[in-house]
């Protein structure tokens, strides 16, 4: 049972981050655009979805609106960069800064809290059968009536939650895969890889870039929406650290599973976040103290970034041993 818990834990935090990693991948890898909007659009996804669900809106609609919110963040960053010629990093930072306020406004209005730093939306105890505050997961729960209450038998709640997440992730991945295989998708990829060539091939690189950043941030906001429905709490700090997680997932995935083709690359990146959360969860199981978590993230990222180097080092070593053996044999 404990092992099952462990696995469920990994997936329930890892799967939303697949989308996050995919989103960051679209800008960071395909466009070569270090997009700091990511944490901002994640926060927008969290706050929009959180507030809408708190108010009893259909969870699918809430999710869709947060996706649109993320896309708008992306468009703003794209416009700042491409039309107003603000450097990439700065345009991301500008949007991210703005989303700080926007999300506080969205959530603050709800909680009616004067201290905006504590602005928080929570619907932890409110989700039961028949209550209007359903999440996309709870819609599918096999509710059981016990006296006056409805409960979800363990571990079915978690299993169904993960199944729904998996469904959303796979659907998003399929859409991304097919979109980037269409003519326009290829044009976007060419823009990111070689803008010179793209222009010479008649691609409007400005629009292509903005579209790609918008899709990226829409995915990140979708990740935010999945996370807030899982944690059932949204605050202004709920996005902190996710950019790093996304980046680490990309690099871990690429190093372990490769990037031979676009399909392979997409799958590698999303598996990367599962691997990442496996490591984090193992560390937590082994008794890692909460205050050391950030340190672990930092170490993990460093190792992930060095993995290609380590990989080639090991290869070199193996080659050396092999050639030595051959020499000895001679």
């Amino acid at each position: 049972m404990e092992f099952l818990d462990f696995i469920l834990n990994i997936f329930s935090s890892g799967l939303p981050c697949c989308l996050l990693a995919l989103g960051i991948f679209l800008t960071y890898r395909l466009l070569d655009f270090a997009d700091l909007t990511a944490e901002g659009s994640f926060l927008i996804g969290v706050s929009i979805c959180g507030v809408m669900i708190f108010n009893g809106v259909n969870p699918w609609l809430a999710t869709l609106v947060s996706v649109l919110g993320g896309a708008i963040c992306g468009i703003i960053t794209g416009v700042l960069n491409r039309l107003l010629n603000i450097p990439k990093l700065l345009s991301g930072i500008i949007t991210m800064t703005a989303t700080g306020s926007i999300s506080m406004i969205i959530m603050g209005l709800q909680s009616g809290n004067s201290d905006i730093f504590a602005a928080q939306v929570s619907f932890t105890n409110l989700v039961t059968k028949g209550s209007p505050q359903q999440t996309i997961y709870s819609l599918f729960y096999p509710w059981e009536q016990v006296g006056d209450f409805y409960i979800v038998p363990n571990p079915w709640g978690d299993v169904i939650k993960i199944a729904v997440m998996l469904g959303v992730v796979i659907l998003a991945m399929l859409i991304i895969y097919f979109f980037f295989g269409t003519k326009y998708g290829m044009a976007i990829r060419a823009t990111g890889m070689n803008e010179n060539m793209a222009k010479a091939q008649g691609i409007n690189t400005t629009i292509a870039t903005i579209v790609c950043i918008a899709i990226s941030n829409a995915l990140i906001a979708l990740a935010g929406a999945l996370v807030v429905q899982e944690s059932k709490t949204a605050s202004t700090i709920s996005a902190t650290g996710y950019l790093v997680i996304g980046l680490a997932s990309i690099i871990v995935g690429e190093t372990i599973f490769g990037k031979r083709s676009f399909k392979n690359w997409l799958i590698s990146v999303s598996l990367g976040s599962i691997i990442y959360f496996t490591i984090v969860n193992i560390a937590t199981r082994l008794g890692l103290r909460t205050e050391l978590k950030s340190l672990l993230y930092a170490v993990l990222i460093t190792i992930a970034l060095c993995l290609p180097l380590i990989k080639s080092g090991i290869k070199h070593l193996i080659d050396k041993i092999k050639s030595k053996k051959v020499k000895e044999a001679i």
Partner: peptide, 12 residues
Amino acid sequence: NRGRRHSPIKWG
């Protein structure tokens, strides 16, 4: 596809 519309639906 140079000089044509880059369709977001048509397979590349």
